[in-house]
Design a protein around this nucleic acid. Structure first.
Lengths: 346, 346
DNA sequence: CTGTTAGCGCGTTCAA
DNA sequence: TTGAACGCGCTAACAG
């Protein structure tokens, strides 16, 4: 049986209140009394019951995070790293983290509603924002505290978010490839309901325009952000004739799939065809060849959105300015887009 | 403001008790009364407060899971998939999941103690068990419900676990390599305090013994389970002369690092040197070349340990037999250990 | 300095 | 069929 304030009170012969105050460090407890209580509590191994505190305080000191998973074999290093950032920051700020894993869709929304309505958490982290994002719409209309990783385009919804400027990132990357002489540039997009998909593809088009390269829908396909999907989409692009001289994938995981597809077609990546990704997950550096990509500081992002949410929560009134943070990503050039001779350049 | 039983009671003019019972579906509420209450509750958007229920029920309906992370850039697809399995099963059984991310060590133990002593969760999932595992020792001595993924060797501690027979898995894998003609077999172990490290290396030795191949400590190094570590350790093994004709890594992530090391040394994997891993994460199939590995059903394992824990919790008395489940892994042969001619075989 | 009272929201006696 | 009273464990306002 766990030991409660009552147990200590009985043992030392003071009231529950006094014990509570002594333990809380109030100054209005006689020194000897305090010592007795502290010693006894330590001896009995007392720890306050979290649930009781939560009820009393009308706070759970817990934040919620619903990880969007796709299928049972879900495994994205991006989310491992994001979770580590969130989890470590939460611990540092003495918050607990309630995690749920759901595929996007109707069921996902039920999870959000439950966490909100049952007051299971004090605030929520929303990631991988979508156009007309129902989660954000719901949270905003409920006035429930949340911070998003990614923007969204809901009318009348102004909410705190942190995002990475994917448009600039992909523009820079595409320009880099154009500078290397590429003209037939394949592009594997993310599902188009994701806001970052639009931003990134806009960066791609922007770079094409700036160099008077006509946009050709034939070079653009949509993948599901998994390596398998990257493999399939990469293959689809590469069996065309003429084939692209480079393929940009919307995330590193798909880029790895594209590399795999290229190799299965007997092409040498970095020589016969170039491949680039986005994220710079740890694996990118150790891919074969090492992957040219656009780096976003995933771990730090996790930390920051978590910190933003906790600030929001602790600002009591949410009168703080809604922060809109947009980070600039960084182009990382590696061998997968080697400058070695490429067929049909220029 | 959230709506409570009291709000509904006031509105309908019945007592809190009656409202509570109507909502809980008790049979001793007059039908018209019940209807009124149900309708009003729905209209007012009532949901019971989770915290209050927890306090009342002396249960949190929450399970805890501390993910062992290593460094900020932690990103292991293994844990993504395990987490998905755990999370989905928990949701299915209507349990919440409290996640913490900690590096192994002193701080980690504090997290466990906190969850237990403050009654933050009803039970815990322990993964990546270690020799003389302090977490298990603590939980066992506290009589706190938990299920481990992996065995451990504590005197007098009999606890429920699920494990994969890594010894058999690596034995089979090693035998397969020996059958292919390999004799100089490098081995990148996991840190030796992990129980699975011992099991797997035992399988390696067993296969050597069975084929009268002398064990040579020069072929065995210890890595940290990351791709970076695999790279470093792989390099260390490969610059020896003569070098191993194949390297077994204790997990797929390190195997990818080894492949990277081999390629950086100008070796072609599958021809100049073979590489094998363990886990069969989704990336393994799309590695270059695709990775020969030992498959453990990670997602399913997540589901099962979660289910075991919930069973334990709901069995009220824990008089159930402590289950000790050991799954047999499956050898997956791919091209990274291609049968193409290898130098110095036999 | 210390104790009494009160209440967070819920569910479960027990009595009417 | 309904309601009053109680308590889960904790903290805070208010006496004295």
């Amino acid at each position: 049986m766990p030991v409660t304030l009552k147990d200590i009170a009985q043992r030392v012969g003071y009231s529950i209140t006094t014990v509570s105050r002594a333990l809380a460090g109030y100054s209005d407890v006689a020194e000897p009394t305090r010592q007795l209580i502290l010693d006894t509590a330590a001896e009995m191994g007392y720890s306050p019951d979290a649930t009781a505190r939560h009820l009393r305080a009308q706070r759970t000191d817990t934040i919620g995070f619903v990880i969007p998973t796709h299928g049972p074999r879900f495994s994205d290093p991006f989310f491992s790293e994001l979770l580590a950032g969130i989890g470590n920051k939460a611990a540092e700020r003495e918050f607990d983290l309630l995690v749920s894993t759901r595929a996007p869709g109707e069921e996902e929304l039920i999870v959000y509603r439950r966490m909100v309505k049952e007051r299971r958490v004090d605030g929520l982290l929303v990631v991988r924002t979508r156009h007309q994002d129902q989660r954000i719409e719901y949270l905003a209309e409920q006035g429930f505290p949340f911070v998003a990783f990614g923007r969204s385009d809901l009318v009348g919804a102004d909410f705190p978010y942190l995002d990475v400027d994917g448009q600039a990132g992909v523009r820079q990357l595409t320009q880099h490839l154009i500078d290397l002489g590429h003209r037939r540039i394949g592009y594997v997009s993310a599902p188009l309901d994701l806001t970052f998909a639009s931003h990134r593809i806009a960066g791609y088009r922007e770079a094409l325009d700036a160099n008077s390269i006509p946009f050709d829908a034939q070079w653009v396909v949509v993948g599901q952000l998994t390596e398998r999907s990257g493999y399939e989409m990469g293959r689809e692009l590469l069996i065309q004739s003429p084939r692209p001289t480079v393929i940009i994938a919307c995330n590193d995981l798909m880029a790895l799939g594209v590399i795999s597809a290229a190799q299965s077609l007997g092409l040498t990546v970095g020589r016969d065809v170039a491949v680039a990704g986005f994220d710079d997950v740890p694996l990118a550096e150790h891919a074969h060849p090492p992957l040219t990509t656009v780096r976003q500081p995933i771990y730090e992002i996790g930390q920051r959105i978590c910190d933003m949410l906790i600030q929001l929560l602790q600002g009591e009134g949410e009168l703080l300015e809604k922060p809109h943070i947009v980070l600039e990503p960084e182009l990382i050039v590696r061998q997968s887009c080697g400058t070695a001779s490429l067929p049909d350049r220029g």
